[in-house]
């Protein structure tokens, strides 16, 4: 080689700092994130961390875990976990399962689709108070439903509000629109020619749903389940209005509210809220672990 005889090539000029940063996505548009970041820190991160440290400072002393020990040793508090799960899990499951066939029927294009979809989604706009009022009017002891039953010869009116069932109905009514809209959009994302292809290959309607639609829909259903579960798990107003807030529907949010604002034990209230978040996260984690075992790729025809 003659390299020693020649002048070394001039060093490559380095690209400007601005260019190198832009290459990594750092440029002025990053400032657009600032309002969002402030929002997250001030309204989410700070309250959560504040509540977390508060929960480790029990009012009556007893070490940092005093509140948690108290929670688990008091059956009235401890049972709220089970009570809330008993409402949230079935409600989420019912919402997801009910939304599948309805979304399946509504996914195509047809006249009146918008009207039907709007009718199904309207409960979102009603709010829990109106829903509760309606439930009491309709399913209460003197409501239409029981009056019809009584005229048909039933001896005793059936109790369907101010107990577990009232809250479950309310959760289904308010949660279903969310589940339905999500499921519908997941279903519309599946290429209809896949089902047609399965049909020409000899798959019956049932086989097509089982082997094609359901496996492709399942990851979306998992997400739908998580979202409606979170909504249902944090139930508060309907647990009071159409439930039995000191007994059957003494849910975690009521327990947190009562300890903090009736007994003025903010610290214990914070601990209940932390446990509530923990239970929700545990359920979501379980669902997502199951989801990770599914096929989650594209659902279009070309794969």
């Amino acid at each position: 080689m003659t390299a020693t005889l020649e002048k070394p090539p001039p060093p490559l000029e380095k690209a400007s700092l601005k260019h190198r940063l832009a290459e990594r996505g750092v440029d002025r548009t990053l400032w657009l994130l600032v309002p969002g970041a402030i929002f997250v820190v001030v309204l989410f991160l700070y309250p959560v961390l504040y509540g977390l440290q508060l929960s480790f400072q029990p009012k009556d002393g007893g070490g940092p875990f005093g509140n948690y020990i108290k929670f688990f040793s008091d059956p009235y508090l401890r049972d709220t976990i089970w009570i809330t799960l008993r409402l949230g899990l079935p409600a989420a499951l019912i919402n997801v399962l009910a939304s599948i066939p309805i979304a399946f029927q509504l996914r195509g294009k047809f006249r009146g689709k918008r009207t039907i979809t709007t009718m199904l989604v309207v409960p979102i706009t009603l709010g829990t108070v109106l829903t509760a009022q309606g439930l009491i009017e309709y399913l209460g002891r003197a409501g239409w439903f029981n009056r019809v039953l009584l005229t048909l010869g039933v001896d005793e009116p059936i109790r369907l509000v101010h107990n577990y069932w009232g809250v479950l109905f309310s959760l289904v009514i308010t949660g279903f629109p969310f589940a339905f809209l999500l499921t519908l959009s997941y279903l519309s994302g599946i290429d209809p020619s896949l089902e047609q292809a399965a049909a020409t290959l000899g798959a019956s309607r049932r086989d097509r749903f089982r082997h094609i639609t359901l496996p492709l829909l399942a990851p979306g259903l998992a997400i739908t389940f998580c979202l409606t579960f979170v909504l249902a798990f944090s139930v508060f107003p309907s647990a009071i209005m159409v439930g039995e807030p000191s007994g059957e529907t003494h849910v975690m949010s009521i327990a947190a509210y009562e300890t903090a604002f009736r007994d003025f034990d903010y610290s214990l209230g914070a601990a209940v809220a932390m446990l509530m978040a923990l239970v929700m996260l545990a359920v979501i984690a379980l669902v997502l672990v199951w989801r990770a075992t599914l096929y989650r790729g594209a659902t279009g025809g070309k794969g």
Binding site: A197, A199, T200, G202, H211
Partner: peptide, 20 residues
């Protein structure tokens, strides 16, 4: 007859392969 009982093979324009 519905498609599943005709037993004809079909190749689709977008292939329609089952992605999963």
């Amino acid at each position: 007859l519905p498609p599943e009982r005709r037993g004809f093979g079909m190749v689709f324009q977008n292939y329609a392969l089952f992605p999963h």
